[in-house]
Write a protein that binds this DNA or RNA. Sequence first.
RNA 1: CGGGGCGUAGCGCAGCUUGGUUAGCGCGCCUGCUUUGGGAGCAGGAGGUCCCGGGUUCGAAUCCCGGCGCCCCGACCA
Length: 469
Amino acid sequence: MAQPSVLTPQSDDFPRWYQDVVQKAEMADNGPVRGTMVIRPYGYAIWERIQRELDDRIKAAGAQNAYFPLFIPESYLHREAEHVEGFSPELAVVTHAGGDELAEPIVVRPTSETVIVEFMAKWIQSHRDLPLLLNQWANVVRWELRPRLFLRSSEFLWQEGHTAHASAEDASRYATLIHLEVYNDFLEQVLAVPTIVGIKPKSERFAGAVNTMTCEGMMRDGKALQLATSHELGQNFARAFNIVFQGDDGVSQHCHTTSWGASTRLVGGLIMSHGDDRGLRIPPRLAPWQVVVIAVRDDDEVTHGAREVARELLEAGVRSHLDSGRGSFGRRVTDWEIKGVPLRVEVGPRDLASGHITLVRRDSGEKITVERGEFVGRAREILDEMHDAFYADALAFRESRTTSVTSVDDALVAAQHGFARLDWDLVDEAAEARLKAEAVTVRCLVRRDGTLPQHEEEPNLVAYVAKSY
RNA sequence: CGGGGCGUAGCGCAGCUUGGUUAGCGCGCCUGCUUUGGGAGCAGGAGGUCCCGGGUUCGAAUCCCGGCGCCCCGACCA
């Protein structure tokens, strides 16, 4: 019965558990160059689901996809002082090409603000050209000192949105819309991860931004992970790249720009938000395969029965996968548990004879026996219920590890195992330095009612502090 | 880049202290048979630049010197 666990238990060594899951669920491998990542088919299927859900929401918010080059003239980076300062340490720079040294080095994009804004300047003349709402799906390179698969790799995949607006209010409104209706909606409604939606303090802001919003999630080890961010860039880039439009009053002025991104880090967030000692647990709306149909034996009758079951699920719009009966039953069950498929259907001679179907939930392990004729409907109901169960479970965990405190000392204690909430007024520069000395940072600032502040000078803000990835 | 750990078969490791047959073990892989309702069993088999370079020695996985790489913990970040 009690087998030695396949994975390192989370409580023994969380980072090790994470690596085990990534490996044994066949999500990814390390690439040959340090910090690079090979995303395997199962990991990529998850990413494709994430892409699909985000892309639909981005388009619903009015942005259009486009593509800008991987190579950026180094001089572009230098045009915005804070931007270049922020990214210089992690740039990969091409100095040679075509057998010669280049006159001007080329930077491999760490993010595309500079090229995209350069072209916005070319395309925007009039207020009638605004807002300009662009998004691209791309790879970017940031040379990482300490890489971890999905969480921090030197090359990663993401979407980066870039928009230009006539006024600061429009820019702010749009960045907030993206943040709430694209990112937070996806995180809660698809990834089933409850988030703290807030703004970054100045010390944690994106290089070149005037305001950075974040969705912070809590991982199963109590650490925070930034799952998505949206930036108001003010007129910083518009000035540096001369994006000027003529208003309806005939006056020329600089645009206000925004940028916003979410990356393959989300896959890491998925693993660490929901995973347990048996492996991954994928919330049903995200799962590439929502149901795996396991033929208990490798004989014609059972395999045929299982195939029928899988087919009926597919016809009902449930993403299902057939595991025909090769290999031992127990082994296959374990493998699918590691991969985190939400619902398992076991089809064997007994089920075929009795006219029943056995469903097993990955989240709770509960076995449910249903009539053959009703099982598709039941499966869909259970998948629906599971989304809420995933969310409630993650929320309960976060609440159990969030402590309200009234001093920086207490915050440091609480941050050893989770989030600490305290008045932002209590965190002056010296306090931030003290936190940082113990690897604790201010993750974000929120209003007392939990809503998103406009800026960090608002009175009565609450700070969430934690260790983070 | 600082602190710690480690490089031996695809993966995980033993062997190294005290140099000496043909370098082992578990898992995985291949073949066959028996199995299949919670990580299958038996039999046979394939698979190695012992991280790299140099040195000591009759002889080096083992000892010495120098590199490189990986992992964990920090500083930086999606």
